[in-house]
């Protein structure tokens, strides 16, 4: 599903003395089936941006076009029900949205809201739970009795159960340990491939951006500062530094190596790329075996 922002602006508490600008003249395009990352400092408008994707926020100026649906400042809440189903939004620490008595009921909640029969909703919920790696033995448990990582998975299943065409992830791995983070990111990539989803990921993890994103949007003060492939975005370390953005971890090591005097023709973004450029610059001995 294609998504287009046309000169979108959003003002919080508009028409009041406390008005603050959330988005400023945003024009963007997310291609159907692409994996997009949105990066930027805390408070740069990343979360405000993604809340426009399913009409939780309505632009104060401009248009958001999601598939066939056009959202303008005049769009009424009632017109958004269909859009909400098509765009699944996983909030930061999504486990805080769990509320039902059982895991299964909680995951079936969204499909029921969107008009599935209880039997259909249950079937979809079971499927979604399997997808995130939650087995049938946990279905009848209280969500609050699960571990933190399991609760996170259940909450994500609750969004996947809407069978959305666009998946929006707002820092979905915050608070997880390294292995949990990696598993979660691989899961999203797998779901994206299998269901041909358009993914929009808000993150501070530059290594994930390098690994997964096709397109990166850098936000600053409510405005997209730069849009491009990870390679284009991370090509200029000085520019990143000037805008308080981190490099991927290899980038940080490369910066150190460059300072020491090593030469790199392009910025290596992964360990194999780094090794390929570094090895020729070093003394080597024959490897035995």
């Amino acid at each position: 599903m294609d998504i287009t922002f046309k000169q979108v602006s959003y003002t919080y508490q508009a028409n009041s003395p406390m008005a603050t600008q959330g988005l400023r003249d945003v024009t963007l395009h997310f291609a159907s089936g692409s994996y997009n990352a949105i990066i930027g400092q805390t408070g740069s408008g990343k979360s405000t941006l993604v809340q426009h994707l399913n009409g939780l926020l309505i632009p104060t100026a401009g248009q958001v076009i999601v598939g066939q649906q056009v959202i303008t400042p005049l769009t009424k809440n009632k017109a958004l029900h269909d859009l909400r189903r098509q765009v699944g939004l996983v909030f930061q620490f999504p486990e805080s949205q769990l509320f039902e008595e059982t895991v299964l009921k909680d995951v079936a909640f969204a499909p029921k809201n969107f008009g599935k029969t209880p039997a259909e909703a249950t079937a979809i919920a079971q499927q979604a739970l399997r997808l995130v790696g939650i087995g049938p033995e946990l279905e009848e448990k209280m969500p609050f009795d699960l571990s933190g990582g399991q609760m996170r998975r259940v909450a994500i299943a609750g969004v996947l159960a809407m069978e959305p065409e666009v998946l929006v992830l707002d820092e979905p791995t915050a608070g997880l340990d390294p292995v949990g983070r990696e598993e979660m990111m691989r899961l999203f990539a797998q779901i994206q491939r299998e269901r041909h989803l358009t993914v929009i990921l808000v993150t501070h993890q530059m290594d994930d951006v390098v690994r997964y994103a096709d397109q990166v949007v850098v936000m600053e003060q409510g405005h997209p500062l730069k849009v491009g492939s990870p390679r284009e975005i991370f090509a200029d370390p000085l520019w990143l530094q000037a805008h308080n953005l981190e490099l991927p971890s290899t980038g940080q090591l490369v910066a150190r190596l460059r300072q020491q005097g090593f030469k790199f023709t392009s910025l290596p973004l992964t360990v194999p790329e780094l090794l390929a450029q570094l090895t020729p610059q070093l003394r080597r001995v024959p490897v035995d075996g």
């Binding site: 090591l253 150190r256 020491q260 005097g261 090794l275 070093l282 001995v285 024959p286």
Partner: peptide, 27 residues
């Protein structure tokens, strides 16, 4: 990764700082 490709680095863990300086010596 470098050791596997035959770069004669220490066989001990190196911090980034130590790594960069050993690499420079090898360079």
């Amino acid at each position: 990764g470098l050791v596997k490709q035959g770069v004669p680095l220490s066989d001990q863990y190196l911090s980034e700082e130590q790594l960069v300086s050993e690499l420079w010596t090898l360079h």
